[in-house]
């Protein structure tokens, strides 16, 4: 986390001079100097960095240069939108990717299998902004059934705002989620297919056939469970990637999440917001990897006994 902080800090030191963006054309040179002093931008870089890390550690993410709001407040007001989007995209990607991958593995060599292969190839090579635009064109312009931007109506629950409880909120979620999840879907599907084929070749599957277990049982109970491990790892890591990719999707759909906030901050050289965004994304990455590791432990009994020490 500290490392991410450092990188973020160094990076944003070079993106431009925030003062230039904040002051008006008519403001005098004295005002600039004074502003620079007030923001602490005249201190040497290491001093600035230590102050930044210290602030972050105590939960103070600073104040936005642009809106003068505390960054934490700004980000947390936007976070629910992004998290709901990423959540829906993940559900979409897993929910369709895993069954499709399994189908592709089981129907390999038949035309359904080839069709699935071809589809993933298209999905994997299509850039997100293009998918998004295409989807908008299809479902919002040609057939105006879904909204093309925004979150629709949201309901406030404490500090969290949710689009799950209103029809327009749910409808607004569909297109961005599909756009964001499509790439993940194809990844998951390809991985699932590969793992499944690998598992189906293994000895214990052969032995289960030899014991006369039903094919459906072998495929969906044994092979599926054994193939799921790597898929879970990757989807876990991809959850973080989704968070990052959401920048593009949020821009395309004008989704009021942290990704859009980040893009706006970059345009305005709003360094505290950018830095805080990176820190938060990093925090999510770390947390999700932890959760994935814990999931492993639940799924694979071999890890449990590894923890207790091997029995003879």
């Amino acid at each position: 986390m500290t490392a991410v902080g450092a990188i973020a800090f160094v990076l944003f030191h070079y993106v431009g001079d925030p003062v230039e963006m904040m002051v008006g054309v008519e403001d005098s040179a004295e005002m600039r100097v004074e502003l620079r002093e007030r923001l602490g931008l005249n201190d040497p870089a290491p001093v600035q960095f230590i102050r930044f890390i210290g602030d972050v550690a105590t939960g103070n993410l600073g104040v936005s240069y642009r809106t003068r709001q505390p960054v934490a407040e700004l980000i947390f007001s936007r976070l629910p939108a992004t998290l709901e989007l990423v959540f829906c995209a993940t559900i979409f990607a897993l929910g369709t990717g895993i069954p499709l991958g399994v189908a592709a593995a089981l129907y390999r060599g038949r035309w359904t299998g080839y069709l699935a292969d071809l589809t993933t190839l298209v999905g994997i090579s299509m850039p997100t902004f293009m998918t998004g635009t295409l989807l908008i064109f299809l479902f919002a312009v040609t057939f105006p059934i879904l909204p093309s931007f925004g979150r629709g109506e949201v309901v406030k629950i404490g500090w969290w705002t949710t689009g799950f409880l209103t029809v327009s909120g749910l409808k607004s979620l569909i297109l961005p989620s599909v756009t964001l999840g499509l790439f993940q879907l194809t990844m998951i599907m390809r991985l699932m297919r590969g793992e499944m084929l690998e598992t189906l070749r293994s000895d214990f599957i052969k032995f289960q056939h030899a014991r006369g277990l039903s094919t459906r049982r072998i495929h969906f109970r044994h092979a599926l469970r054994n193939s799921l491990m790597p898929v879970i790892t990757v989807s876990g890591m991809q959850f973080g990637a989704l968070l990052a990719f959401s920048i593009v999707t949020e821009s395309v759909f004008q989704w009021p999440g942290v990704g859009l906030l980040f893009v706006q901050s970059v345009n305005n050289v709003d360094v505290p917001v950018m830095a805080a965004y990176l820190m938060i994304v990093a925090a999510f990455f770390v947390t999700i990897n932890l959760v994935v590791d814990l999931l492993y432990y639940y799924i694979d009994p071999r890890l449990k006994s590894g923890l207790q020490g091997r029995r003879a």
Partner: peptide
């Protein structure tokens, strides 16, 4: 390798 590693 004849036994499914994930089941007892």
């Amino acid at each position: 390798t004849s036994l499914d590693p994930l089941f007892t």
